[in-house]
Write a protein that binds this DNA or RNA. Structure first.
Length: 235
DNA sequence: CGCCAGGCCGTGT
DNA sequence: ACACGGCATGGC
């Protein structure tokens, strides 16, 4: 059984998708580049990430083998534009070390893990929290993961689909429910476009304003919802 | 000058 | 369990 909130989130997604079209995420030429970008974009503007990626690309360093052979101090300088260079360089190095130790240095081998195991392993790595783990699962490993970022949090709380203090797992469960009835292949594609739309539309219309002012799809869903426990029911 | 960006982590309550 | 500050850099 699917909740009313999940139905509404799905409807919201379908409208955004129809209005804005395919987003073409993740912008990268390889799965490994997605991983690098996922680390670098943490609390960082994408334009800054692009500069770092360009630095690596220019030196042909966008591969597991190349990062393995690159001294960490040099990696820091190349990713400097993205900020947090000390932590991010160490984290990226740790990811490569992780592939080397358990997957013969192959991201493809790692991607064969079941999604649940892969997620657990990712969360054990330094510099990988729930959002980065789910972004890697979805955009680098091709798994049907719901990525919960600040934009999605704003959407589901401001539209009254969840209460303000909803946790990551609760928001993720709602997103998962929204696509629960889709076939596996379709579900991956929906998850892909879903997060991309949250970010791209959210960047323009859904920042710090108390409501999503200016958003072309800002319906007031709260009108017919009443808070019950941690969620809402239709009234 | 201030705030923020496609978060995560260590520390204190 | 939760709140809070630090982490680095560049754009506006």
């Amino acid at each position: 059984m699917k909740s009313i909130a999940a139905d509404r989130l799905r409807e919201l997604y379908l409208r955004l998708s129809a209005a804005y079209g395919p987003q073409g995420w993740w912008p990268a030429k390889s799965a490994f580049e997605v991983v690098i970008g996922a680390y670098l974009t943490q609390n960082t503007a994408w334009a800054s990430v692009e500069r770092s990626i360009a630095n690596l690309e220019a030196r042909r360093l966008l591969s597991v083998a190349a990062i393995r052979g690159l001294p960490e101090v040099e990696l820091r300088e190349l990713i400097r534009p993205s900020g947090y260079m000390t932590r991010k360089a160490a984290a990226i190095k740790a990811f490569v070390g992780f592939l080397d130790r358990f997957y013969d240095g192959s991201l493809e081998n790692f991607s064969e893990e079941t999604p649940a195991i892969a997620r657990e392993r990712l969360l054990e790595l330094p510099g990988v929290g729930p959002e980065t783990a789910d972004a890697i699962l979805l955009y680098a490993l091709g798994r049907a993961a719901i990525v919960v970022d600040e934009y999605l949090r704003r959407v589901v709380t401001r539209h009254g689909l969840l209460v303000e203090k909803a946790k990551y797992a609760e928001i993720q469960a709602l997103g998962k429910a929204a696509f629960a009835d889709d076939l596996p292949t379709e579900r991956v594609q929906h998850c892909n476009e879903f997060h991309a739309l949250m970010v791209e539309v959210g960047k323009r219309h859904c920042r710090k304003a108390p409501l999503c002012e200016g958003c072309p799809l800002a319906w007031d869903l709260r009108a017919s919802l009443t808070p019950v426990g941690r969620g809402y029911v239709e009234t």
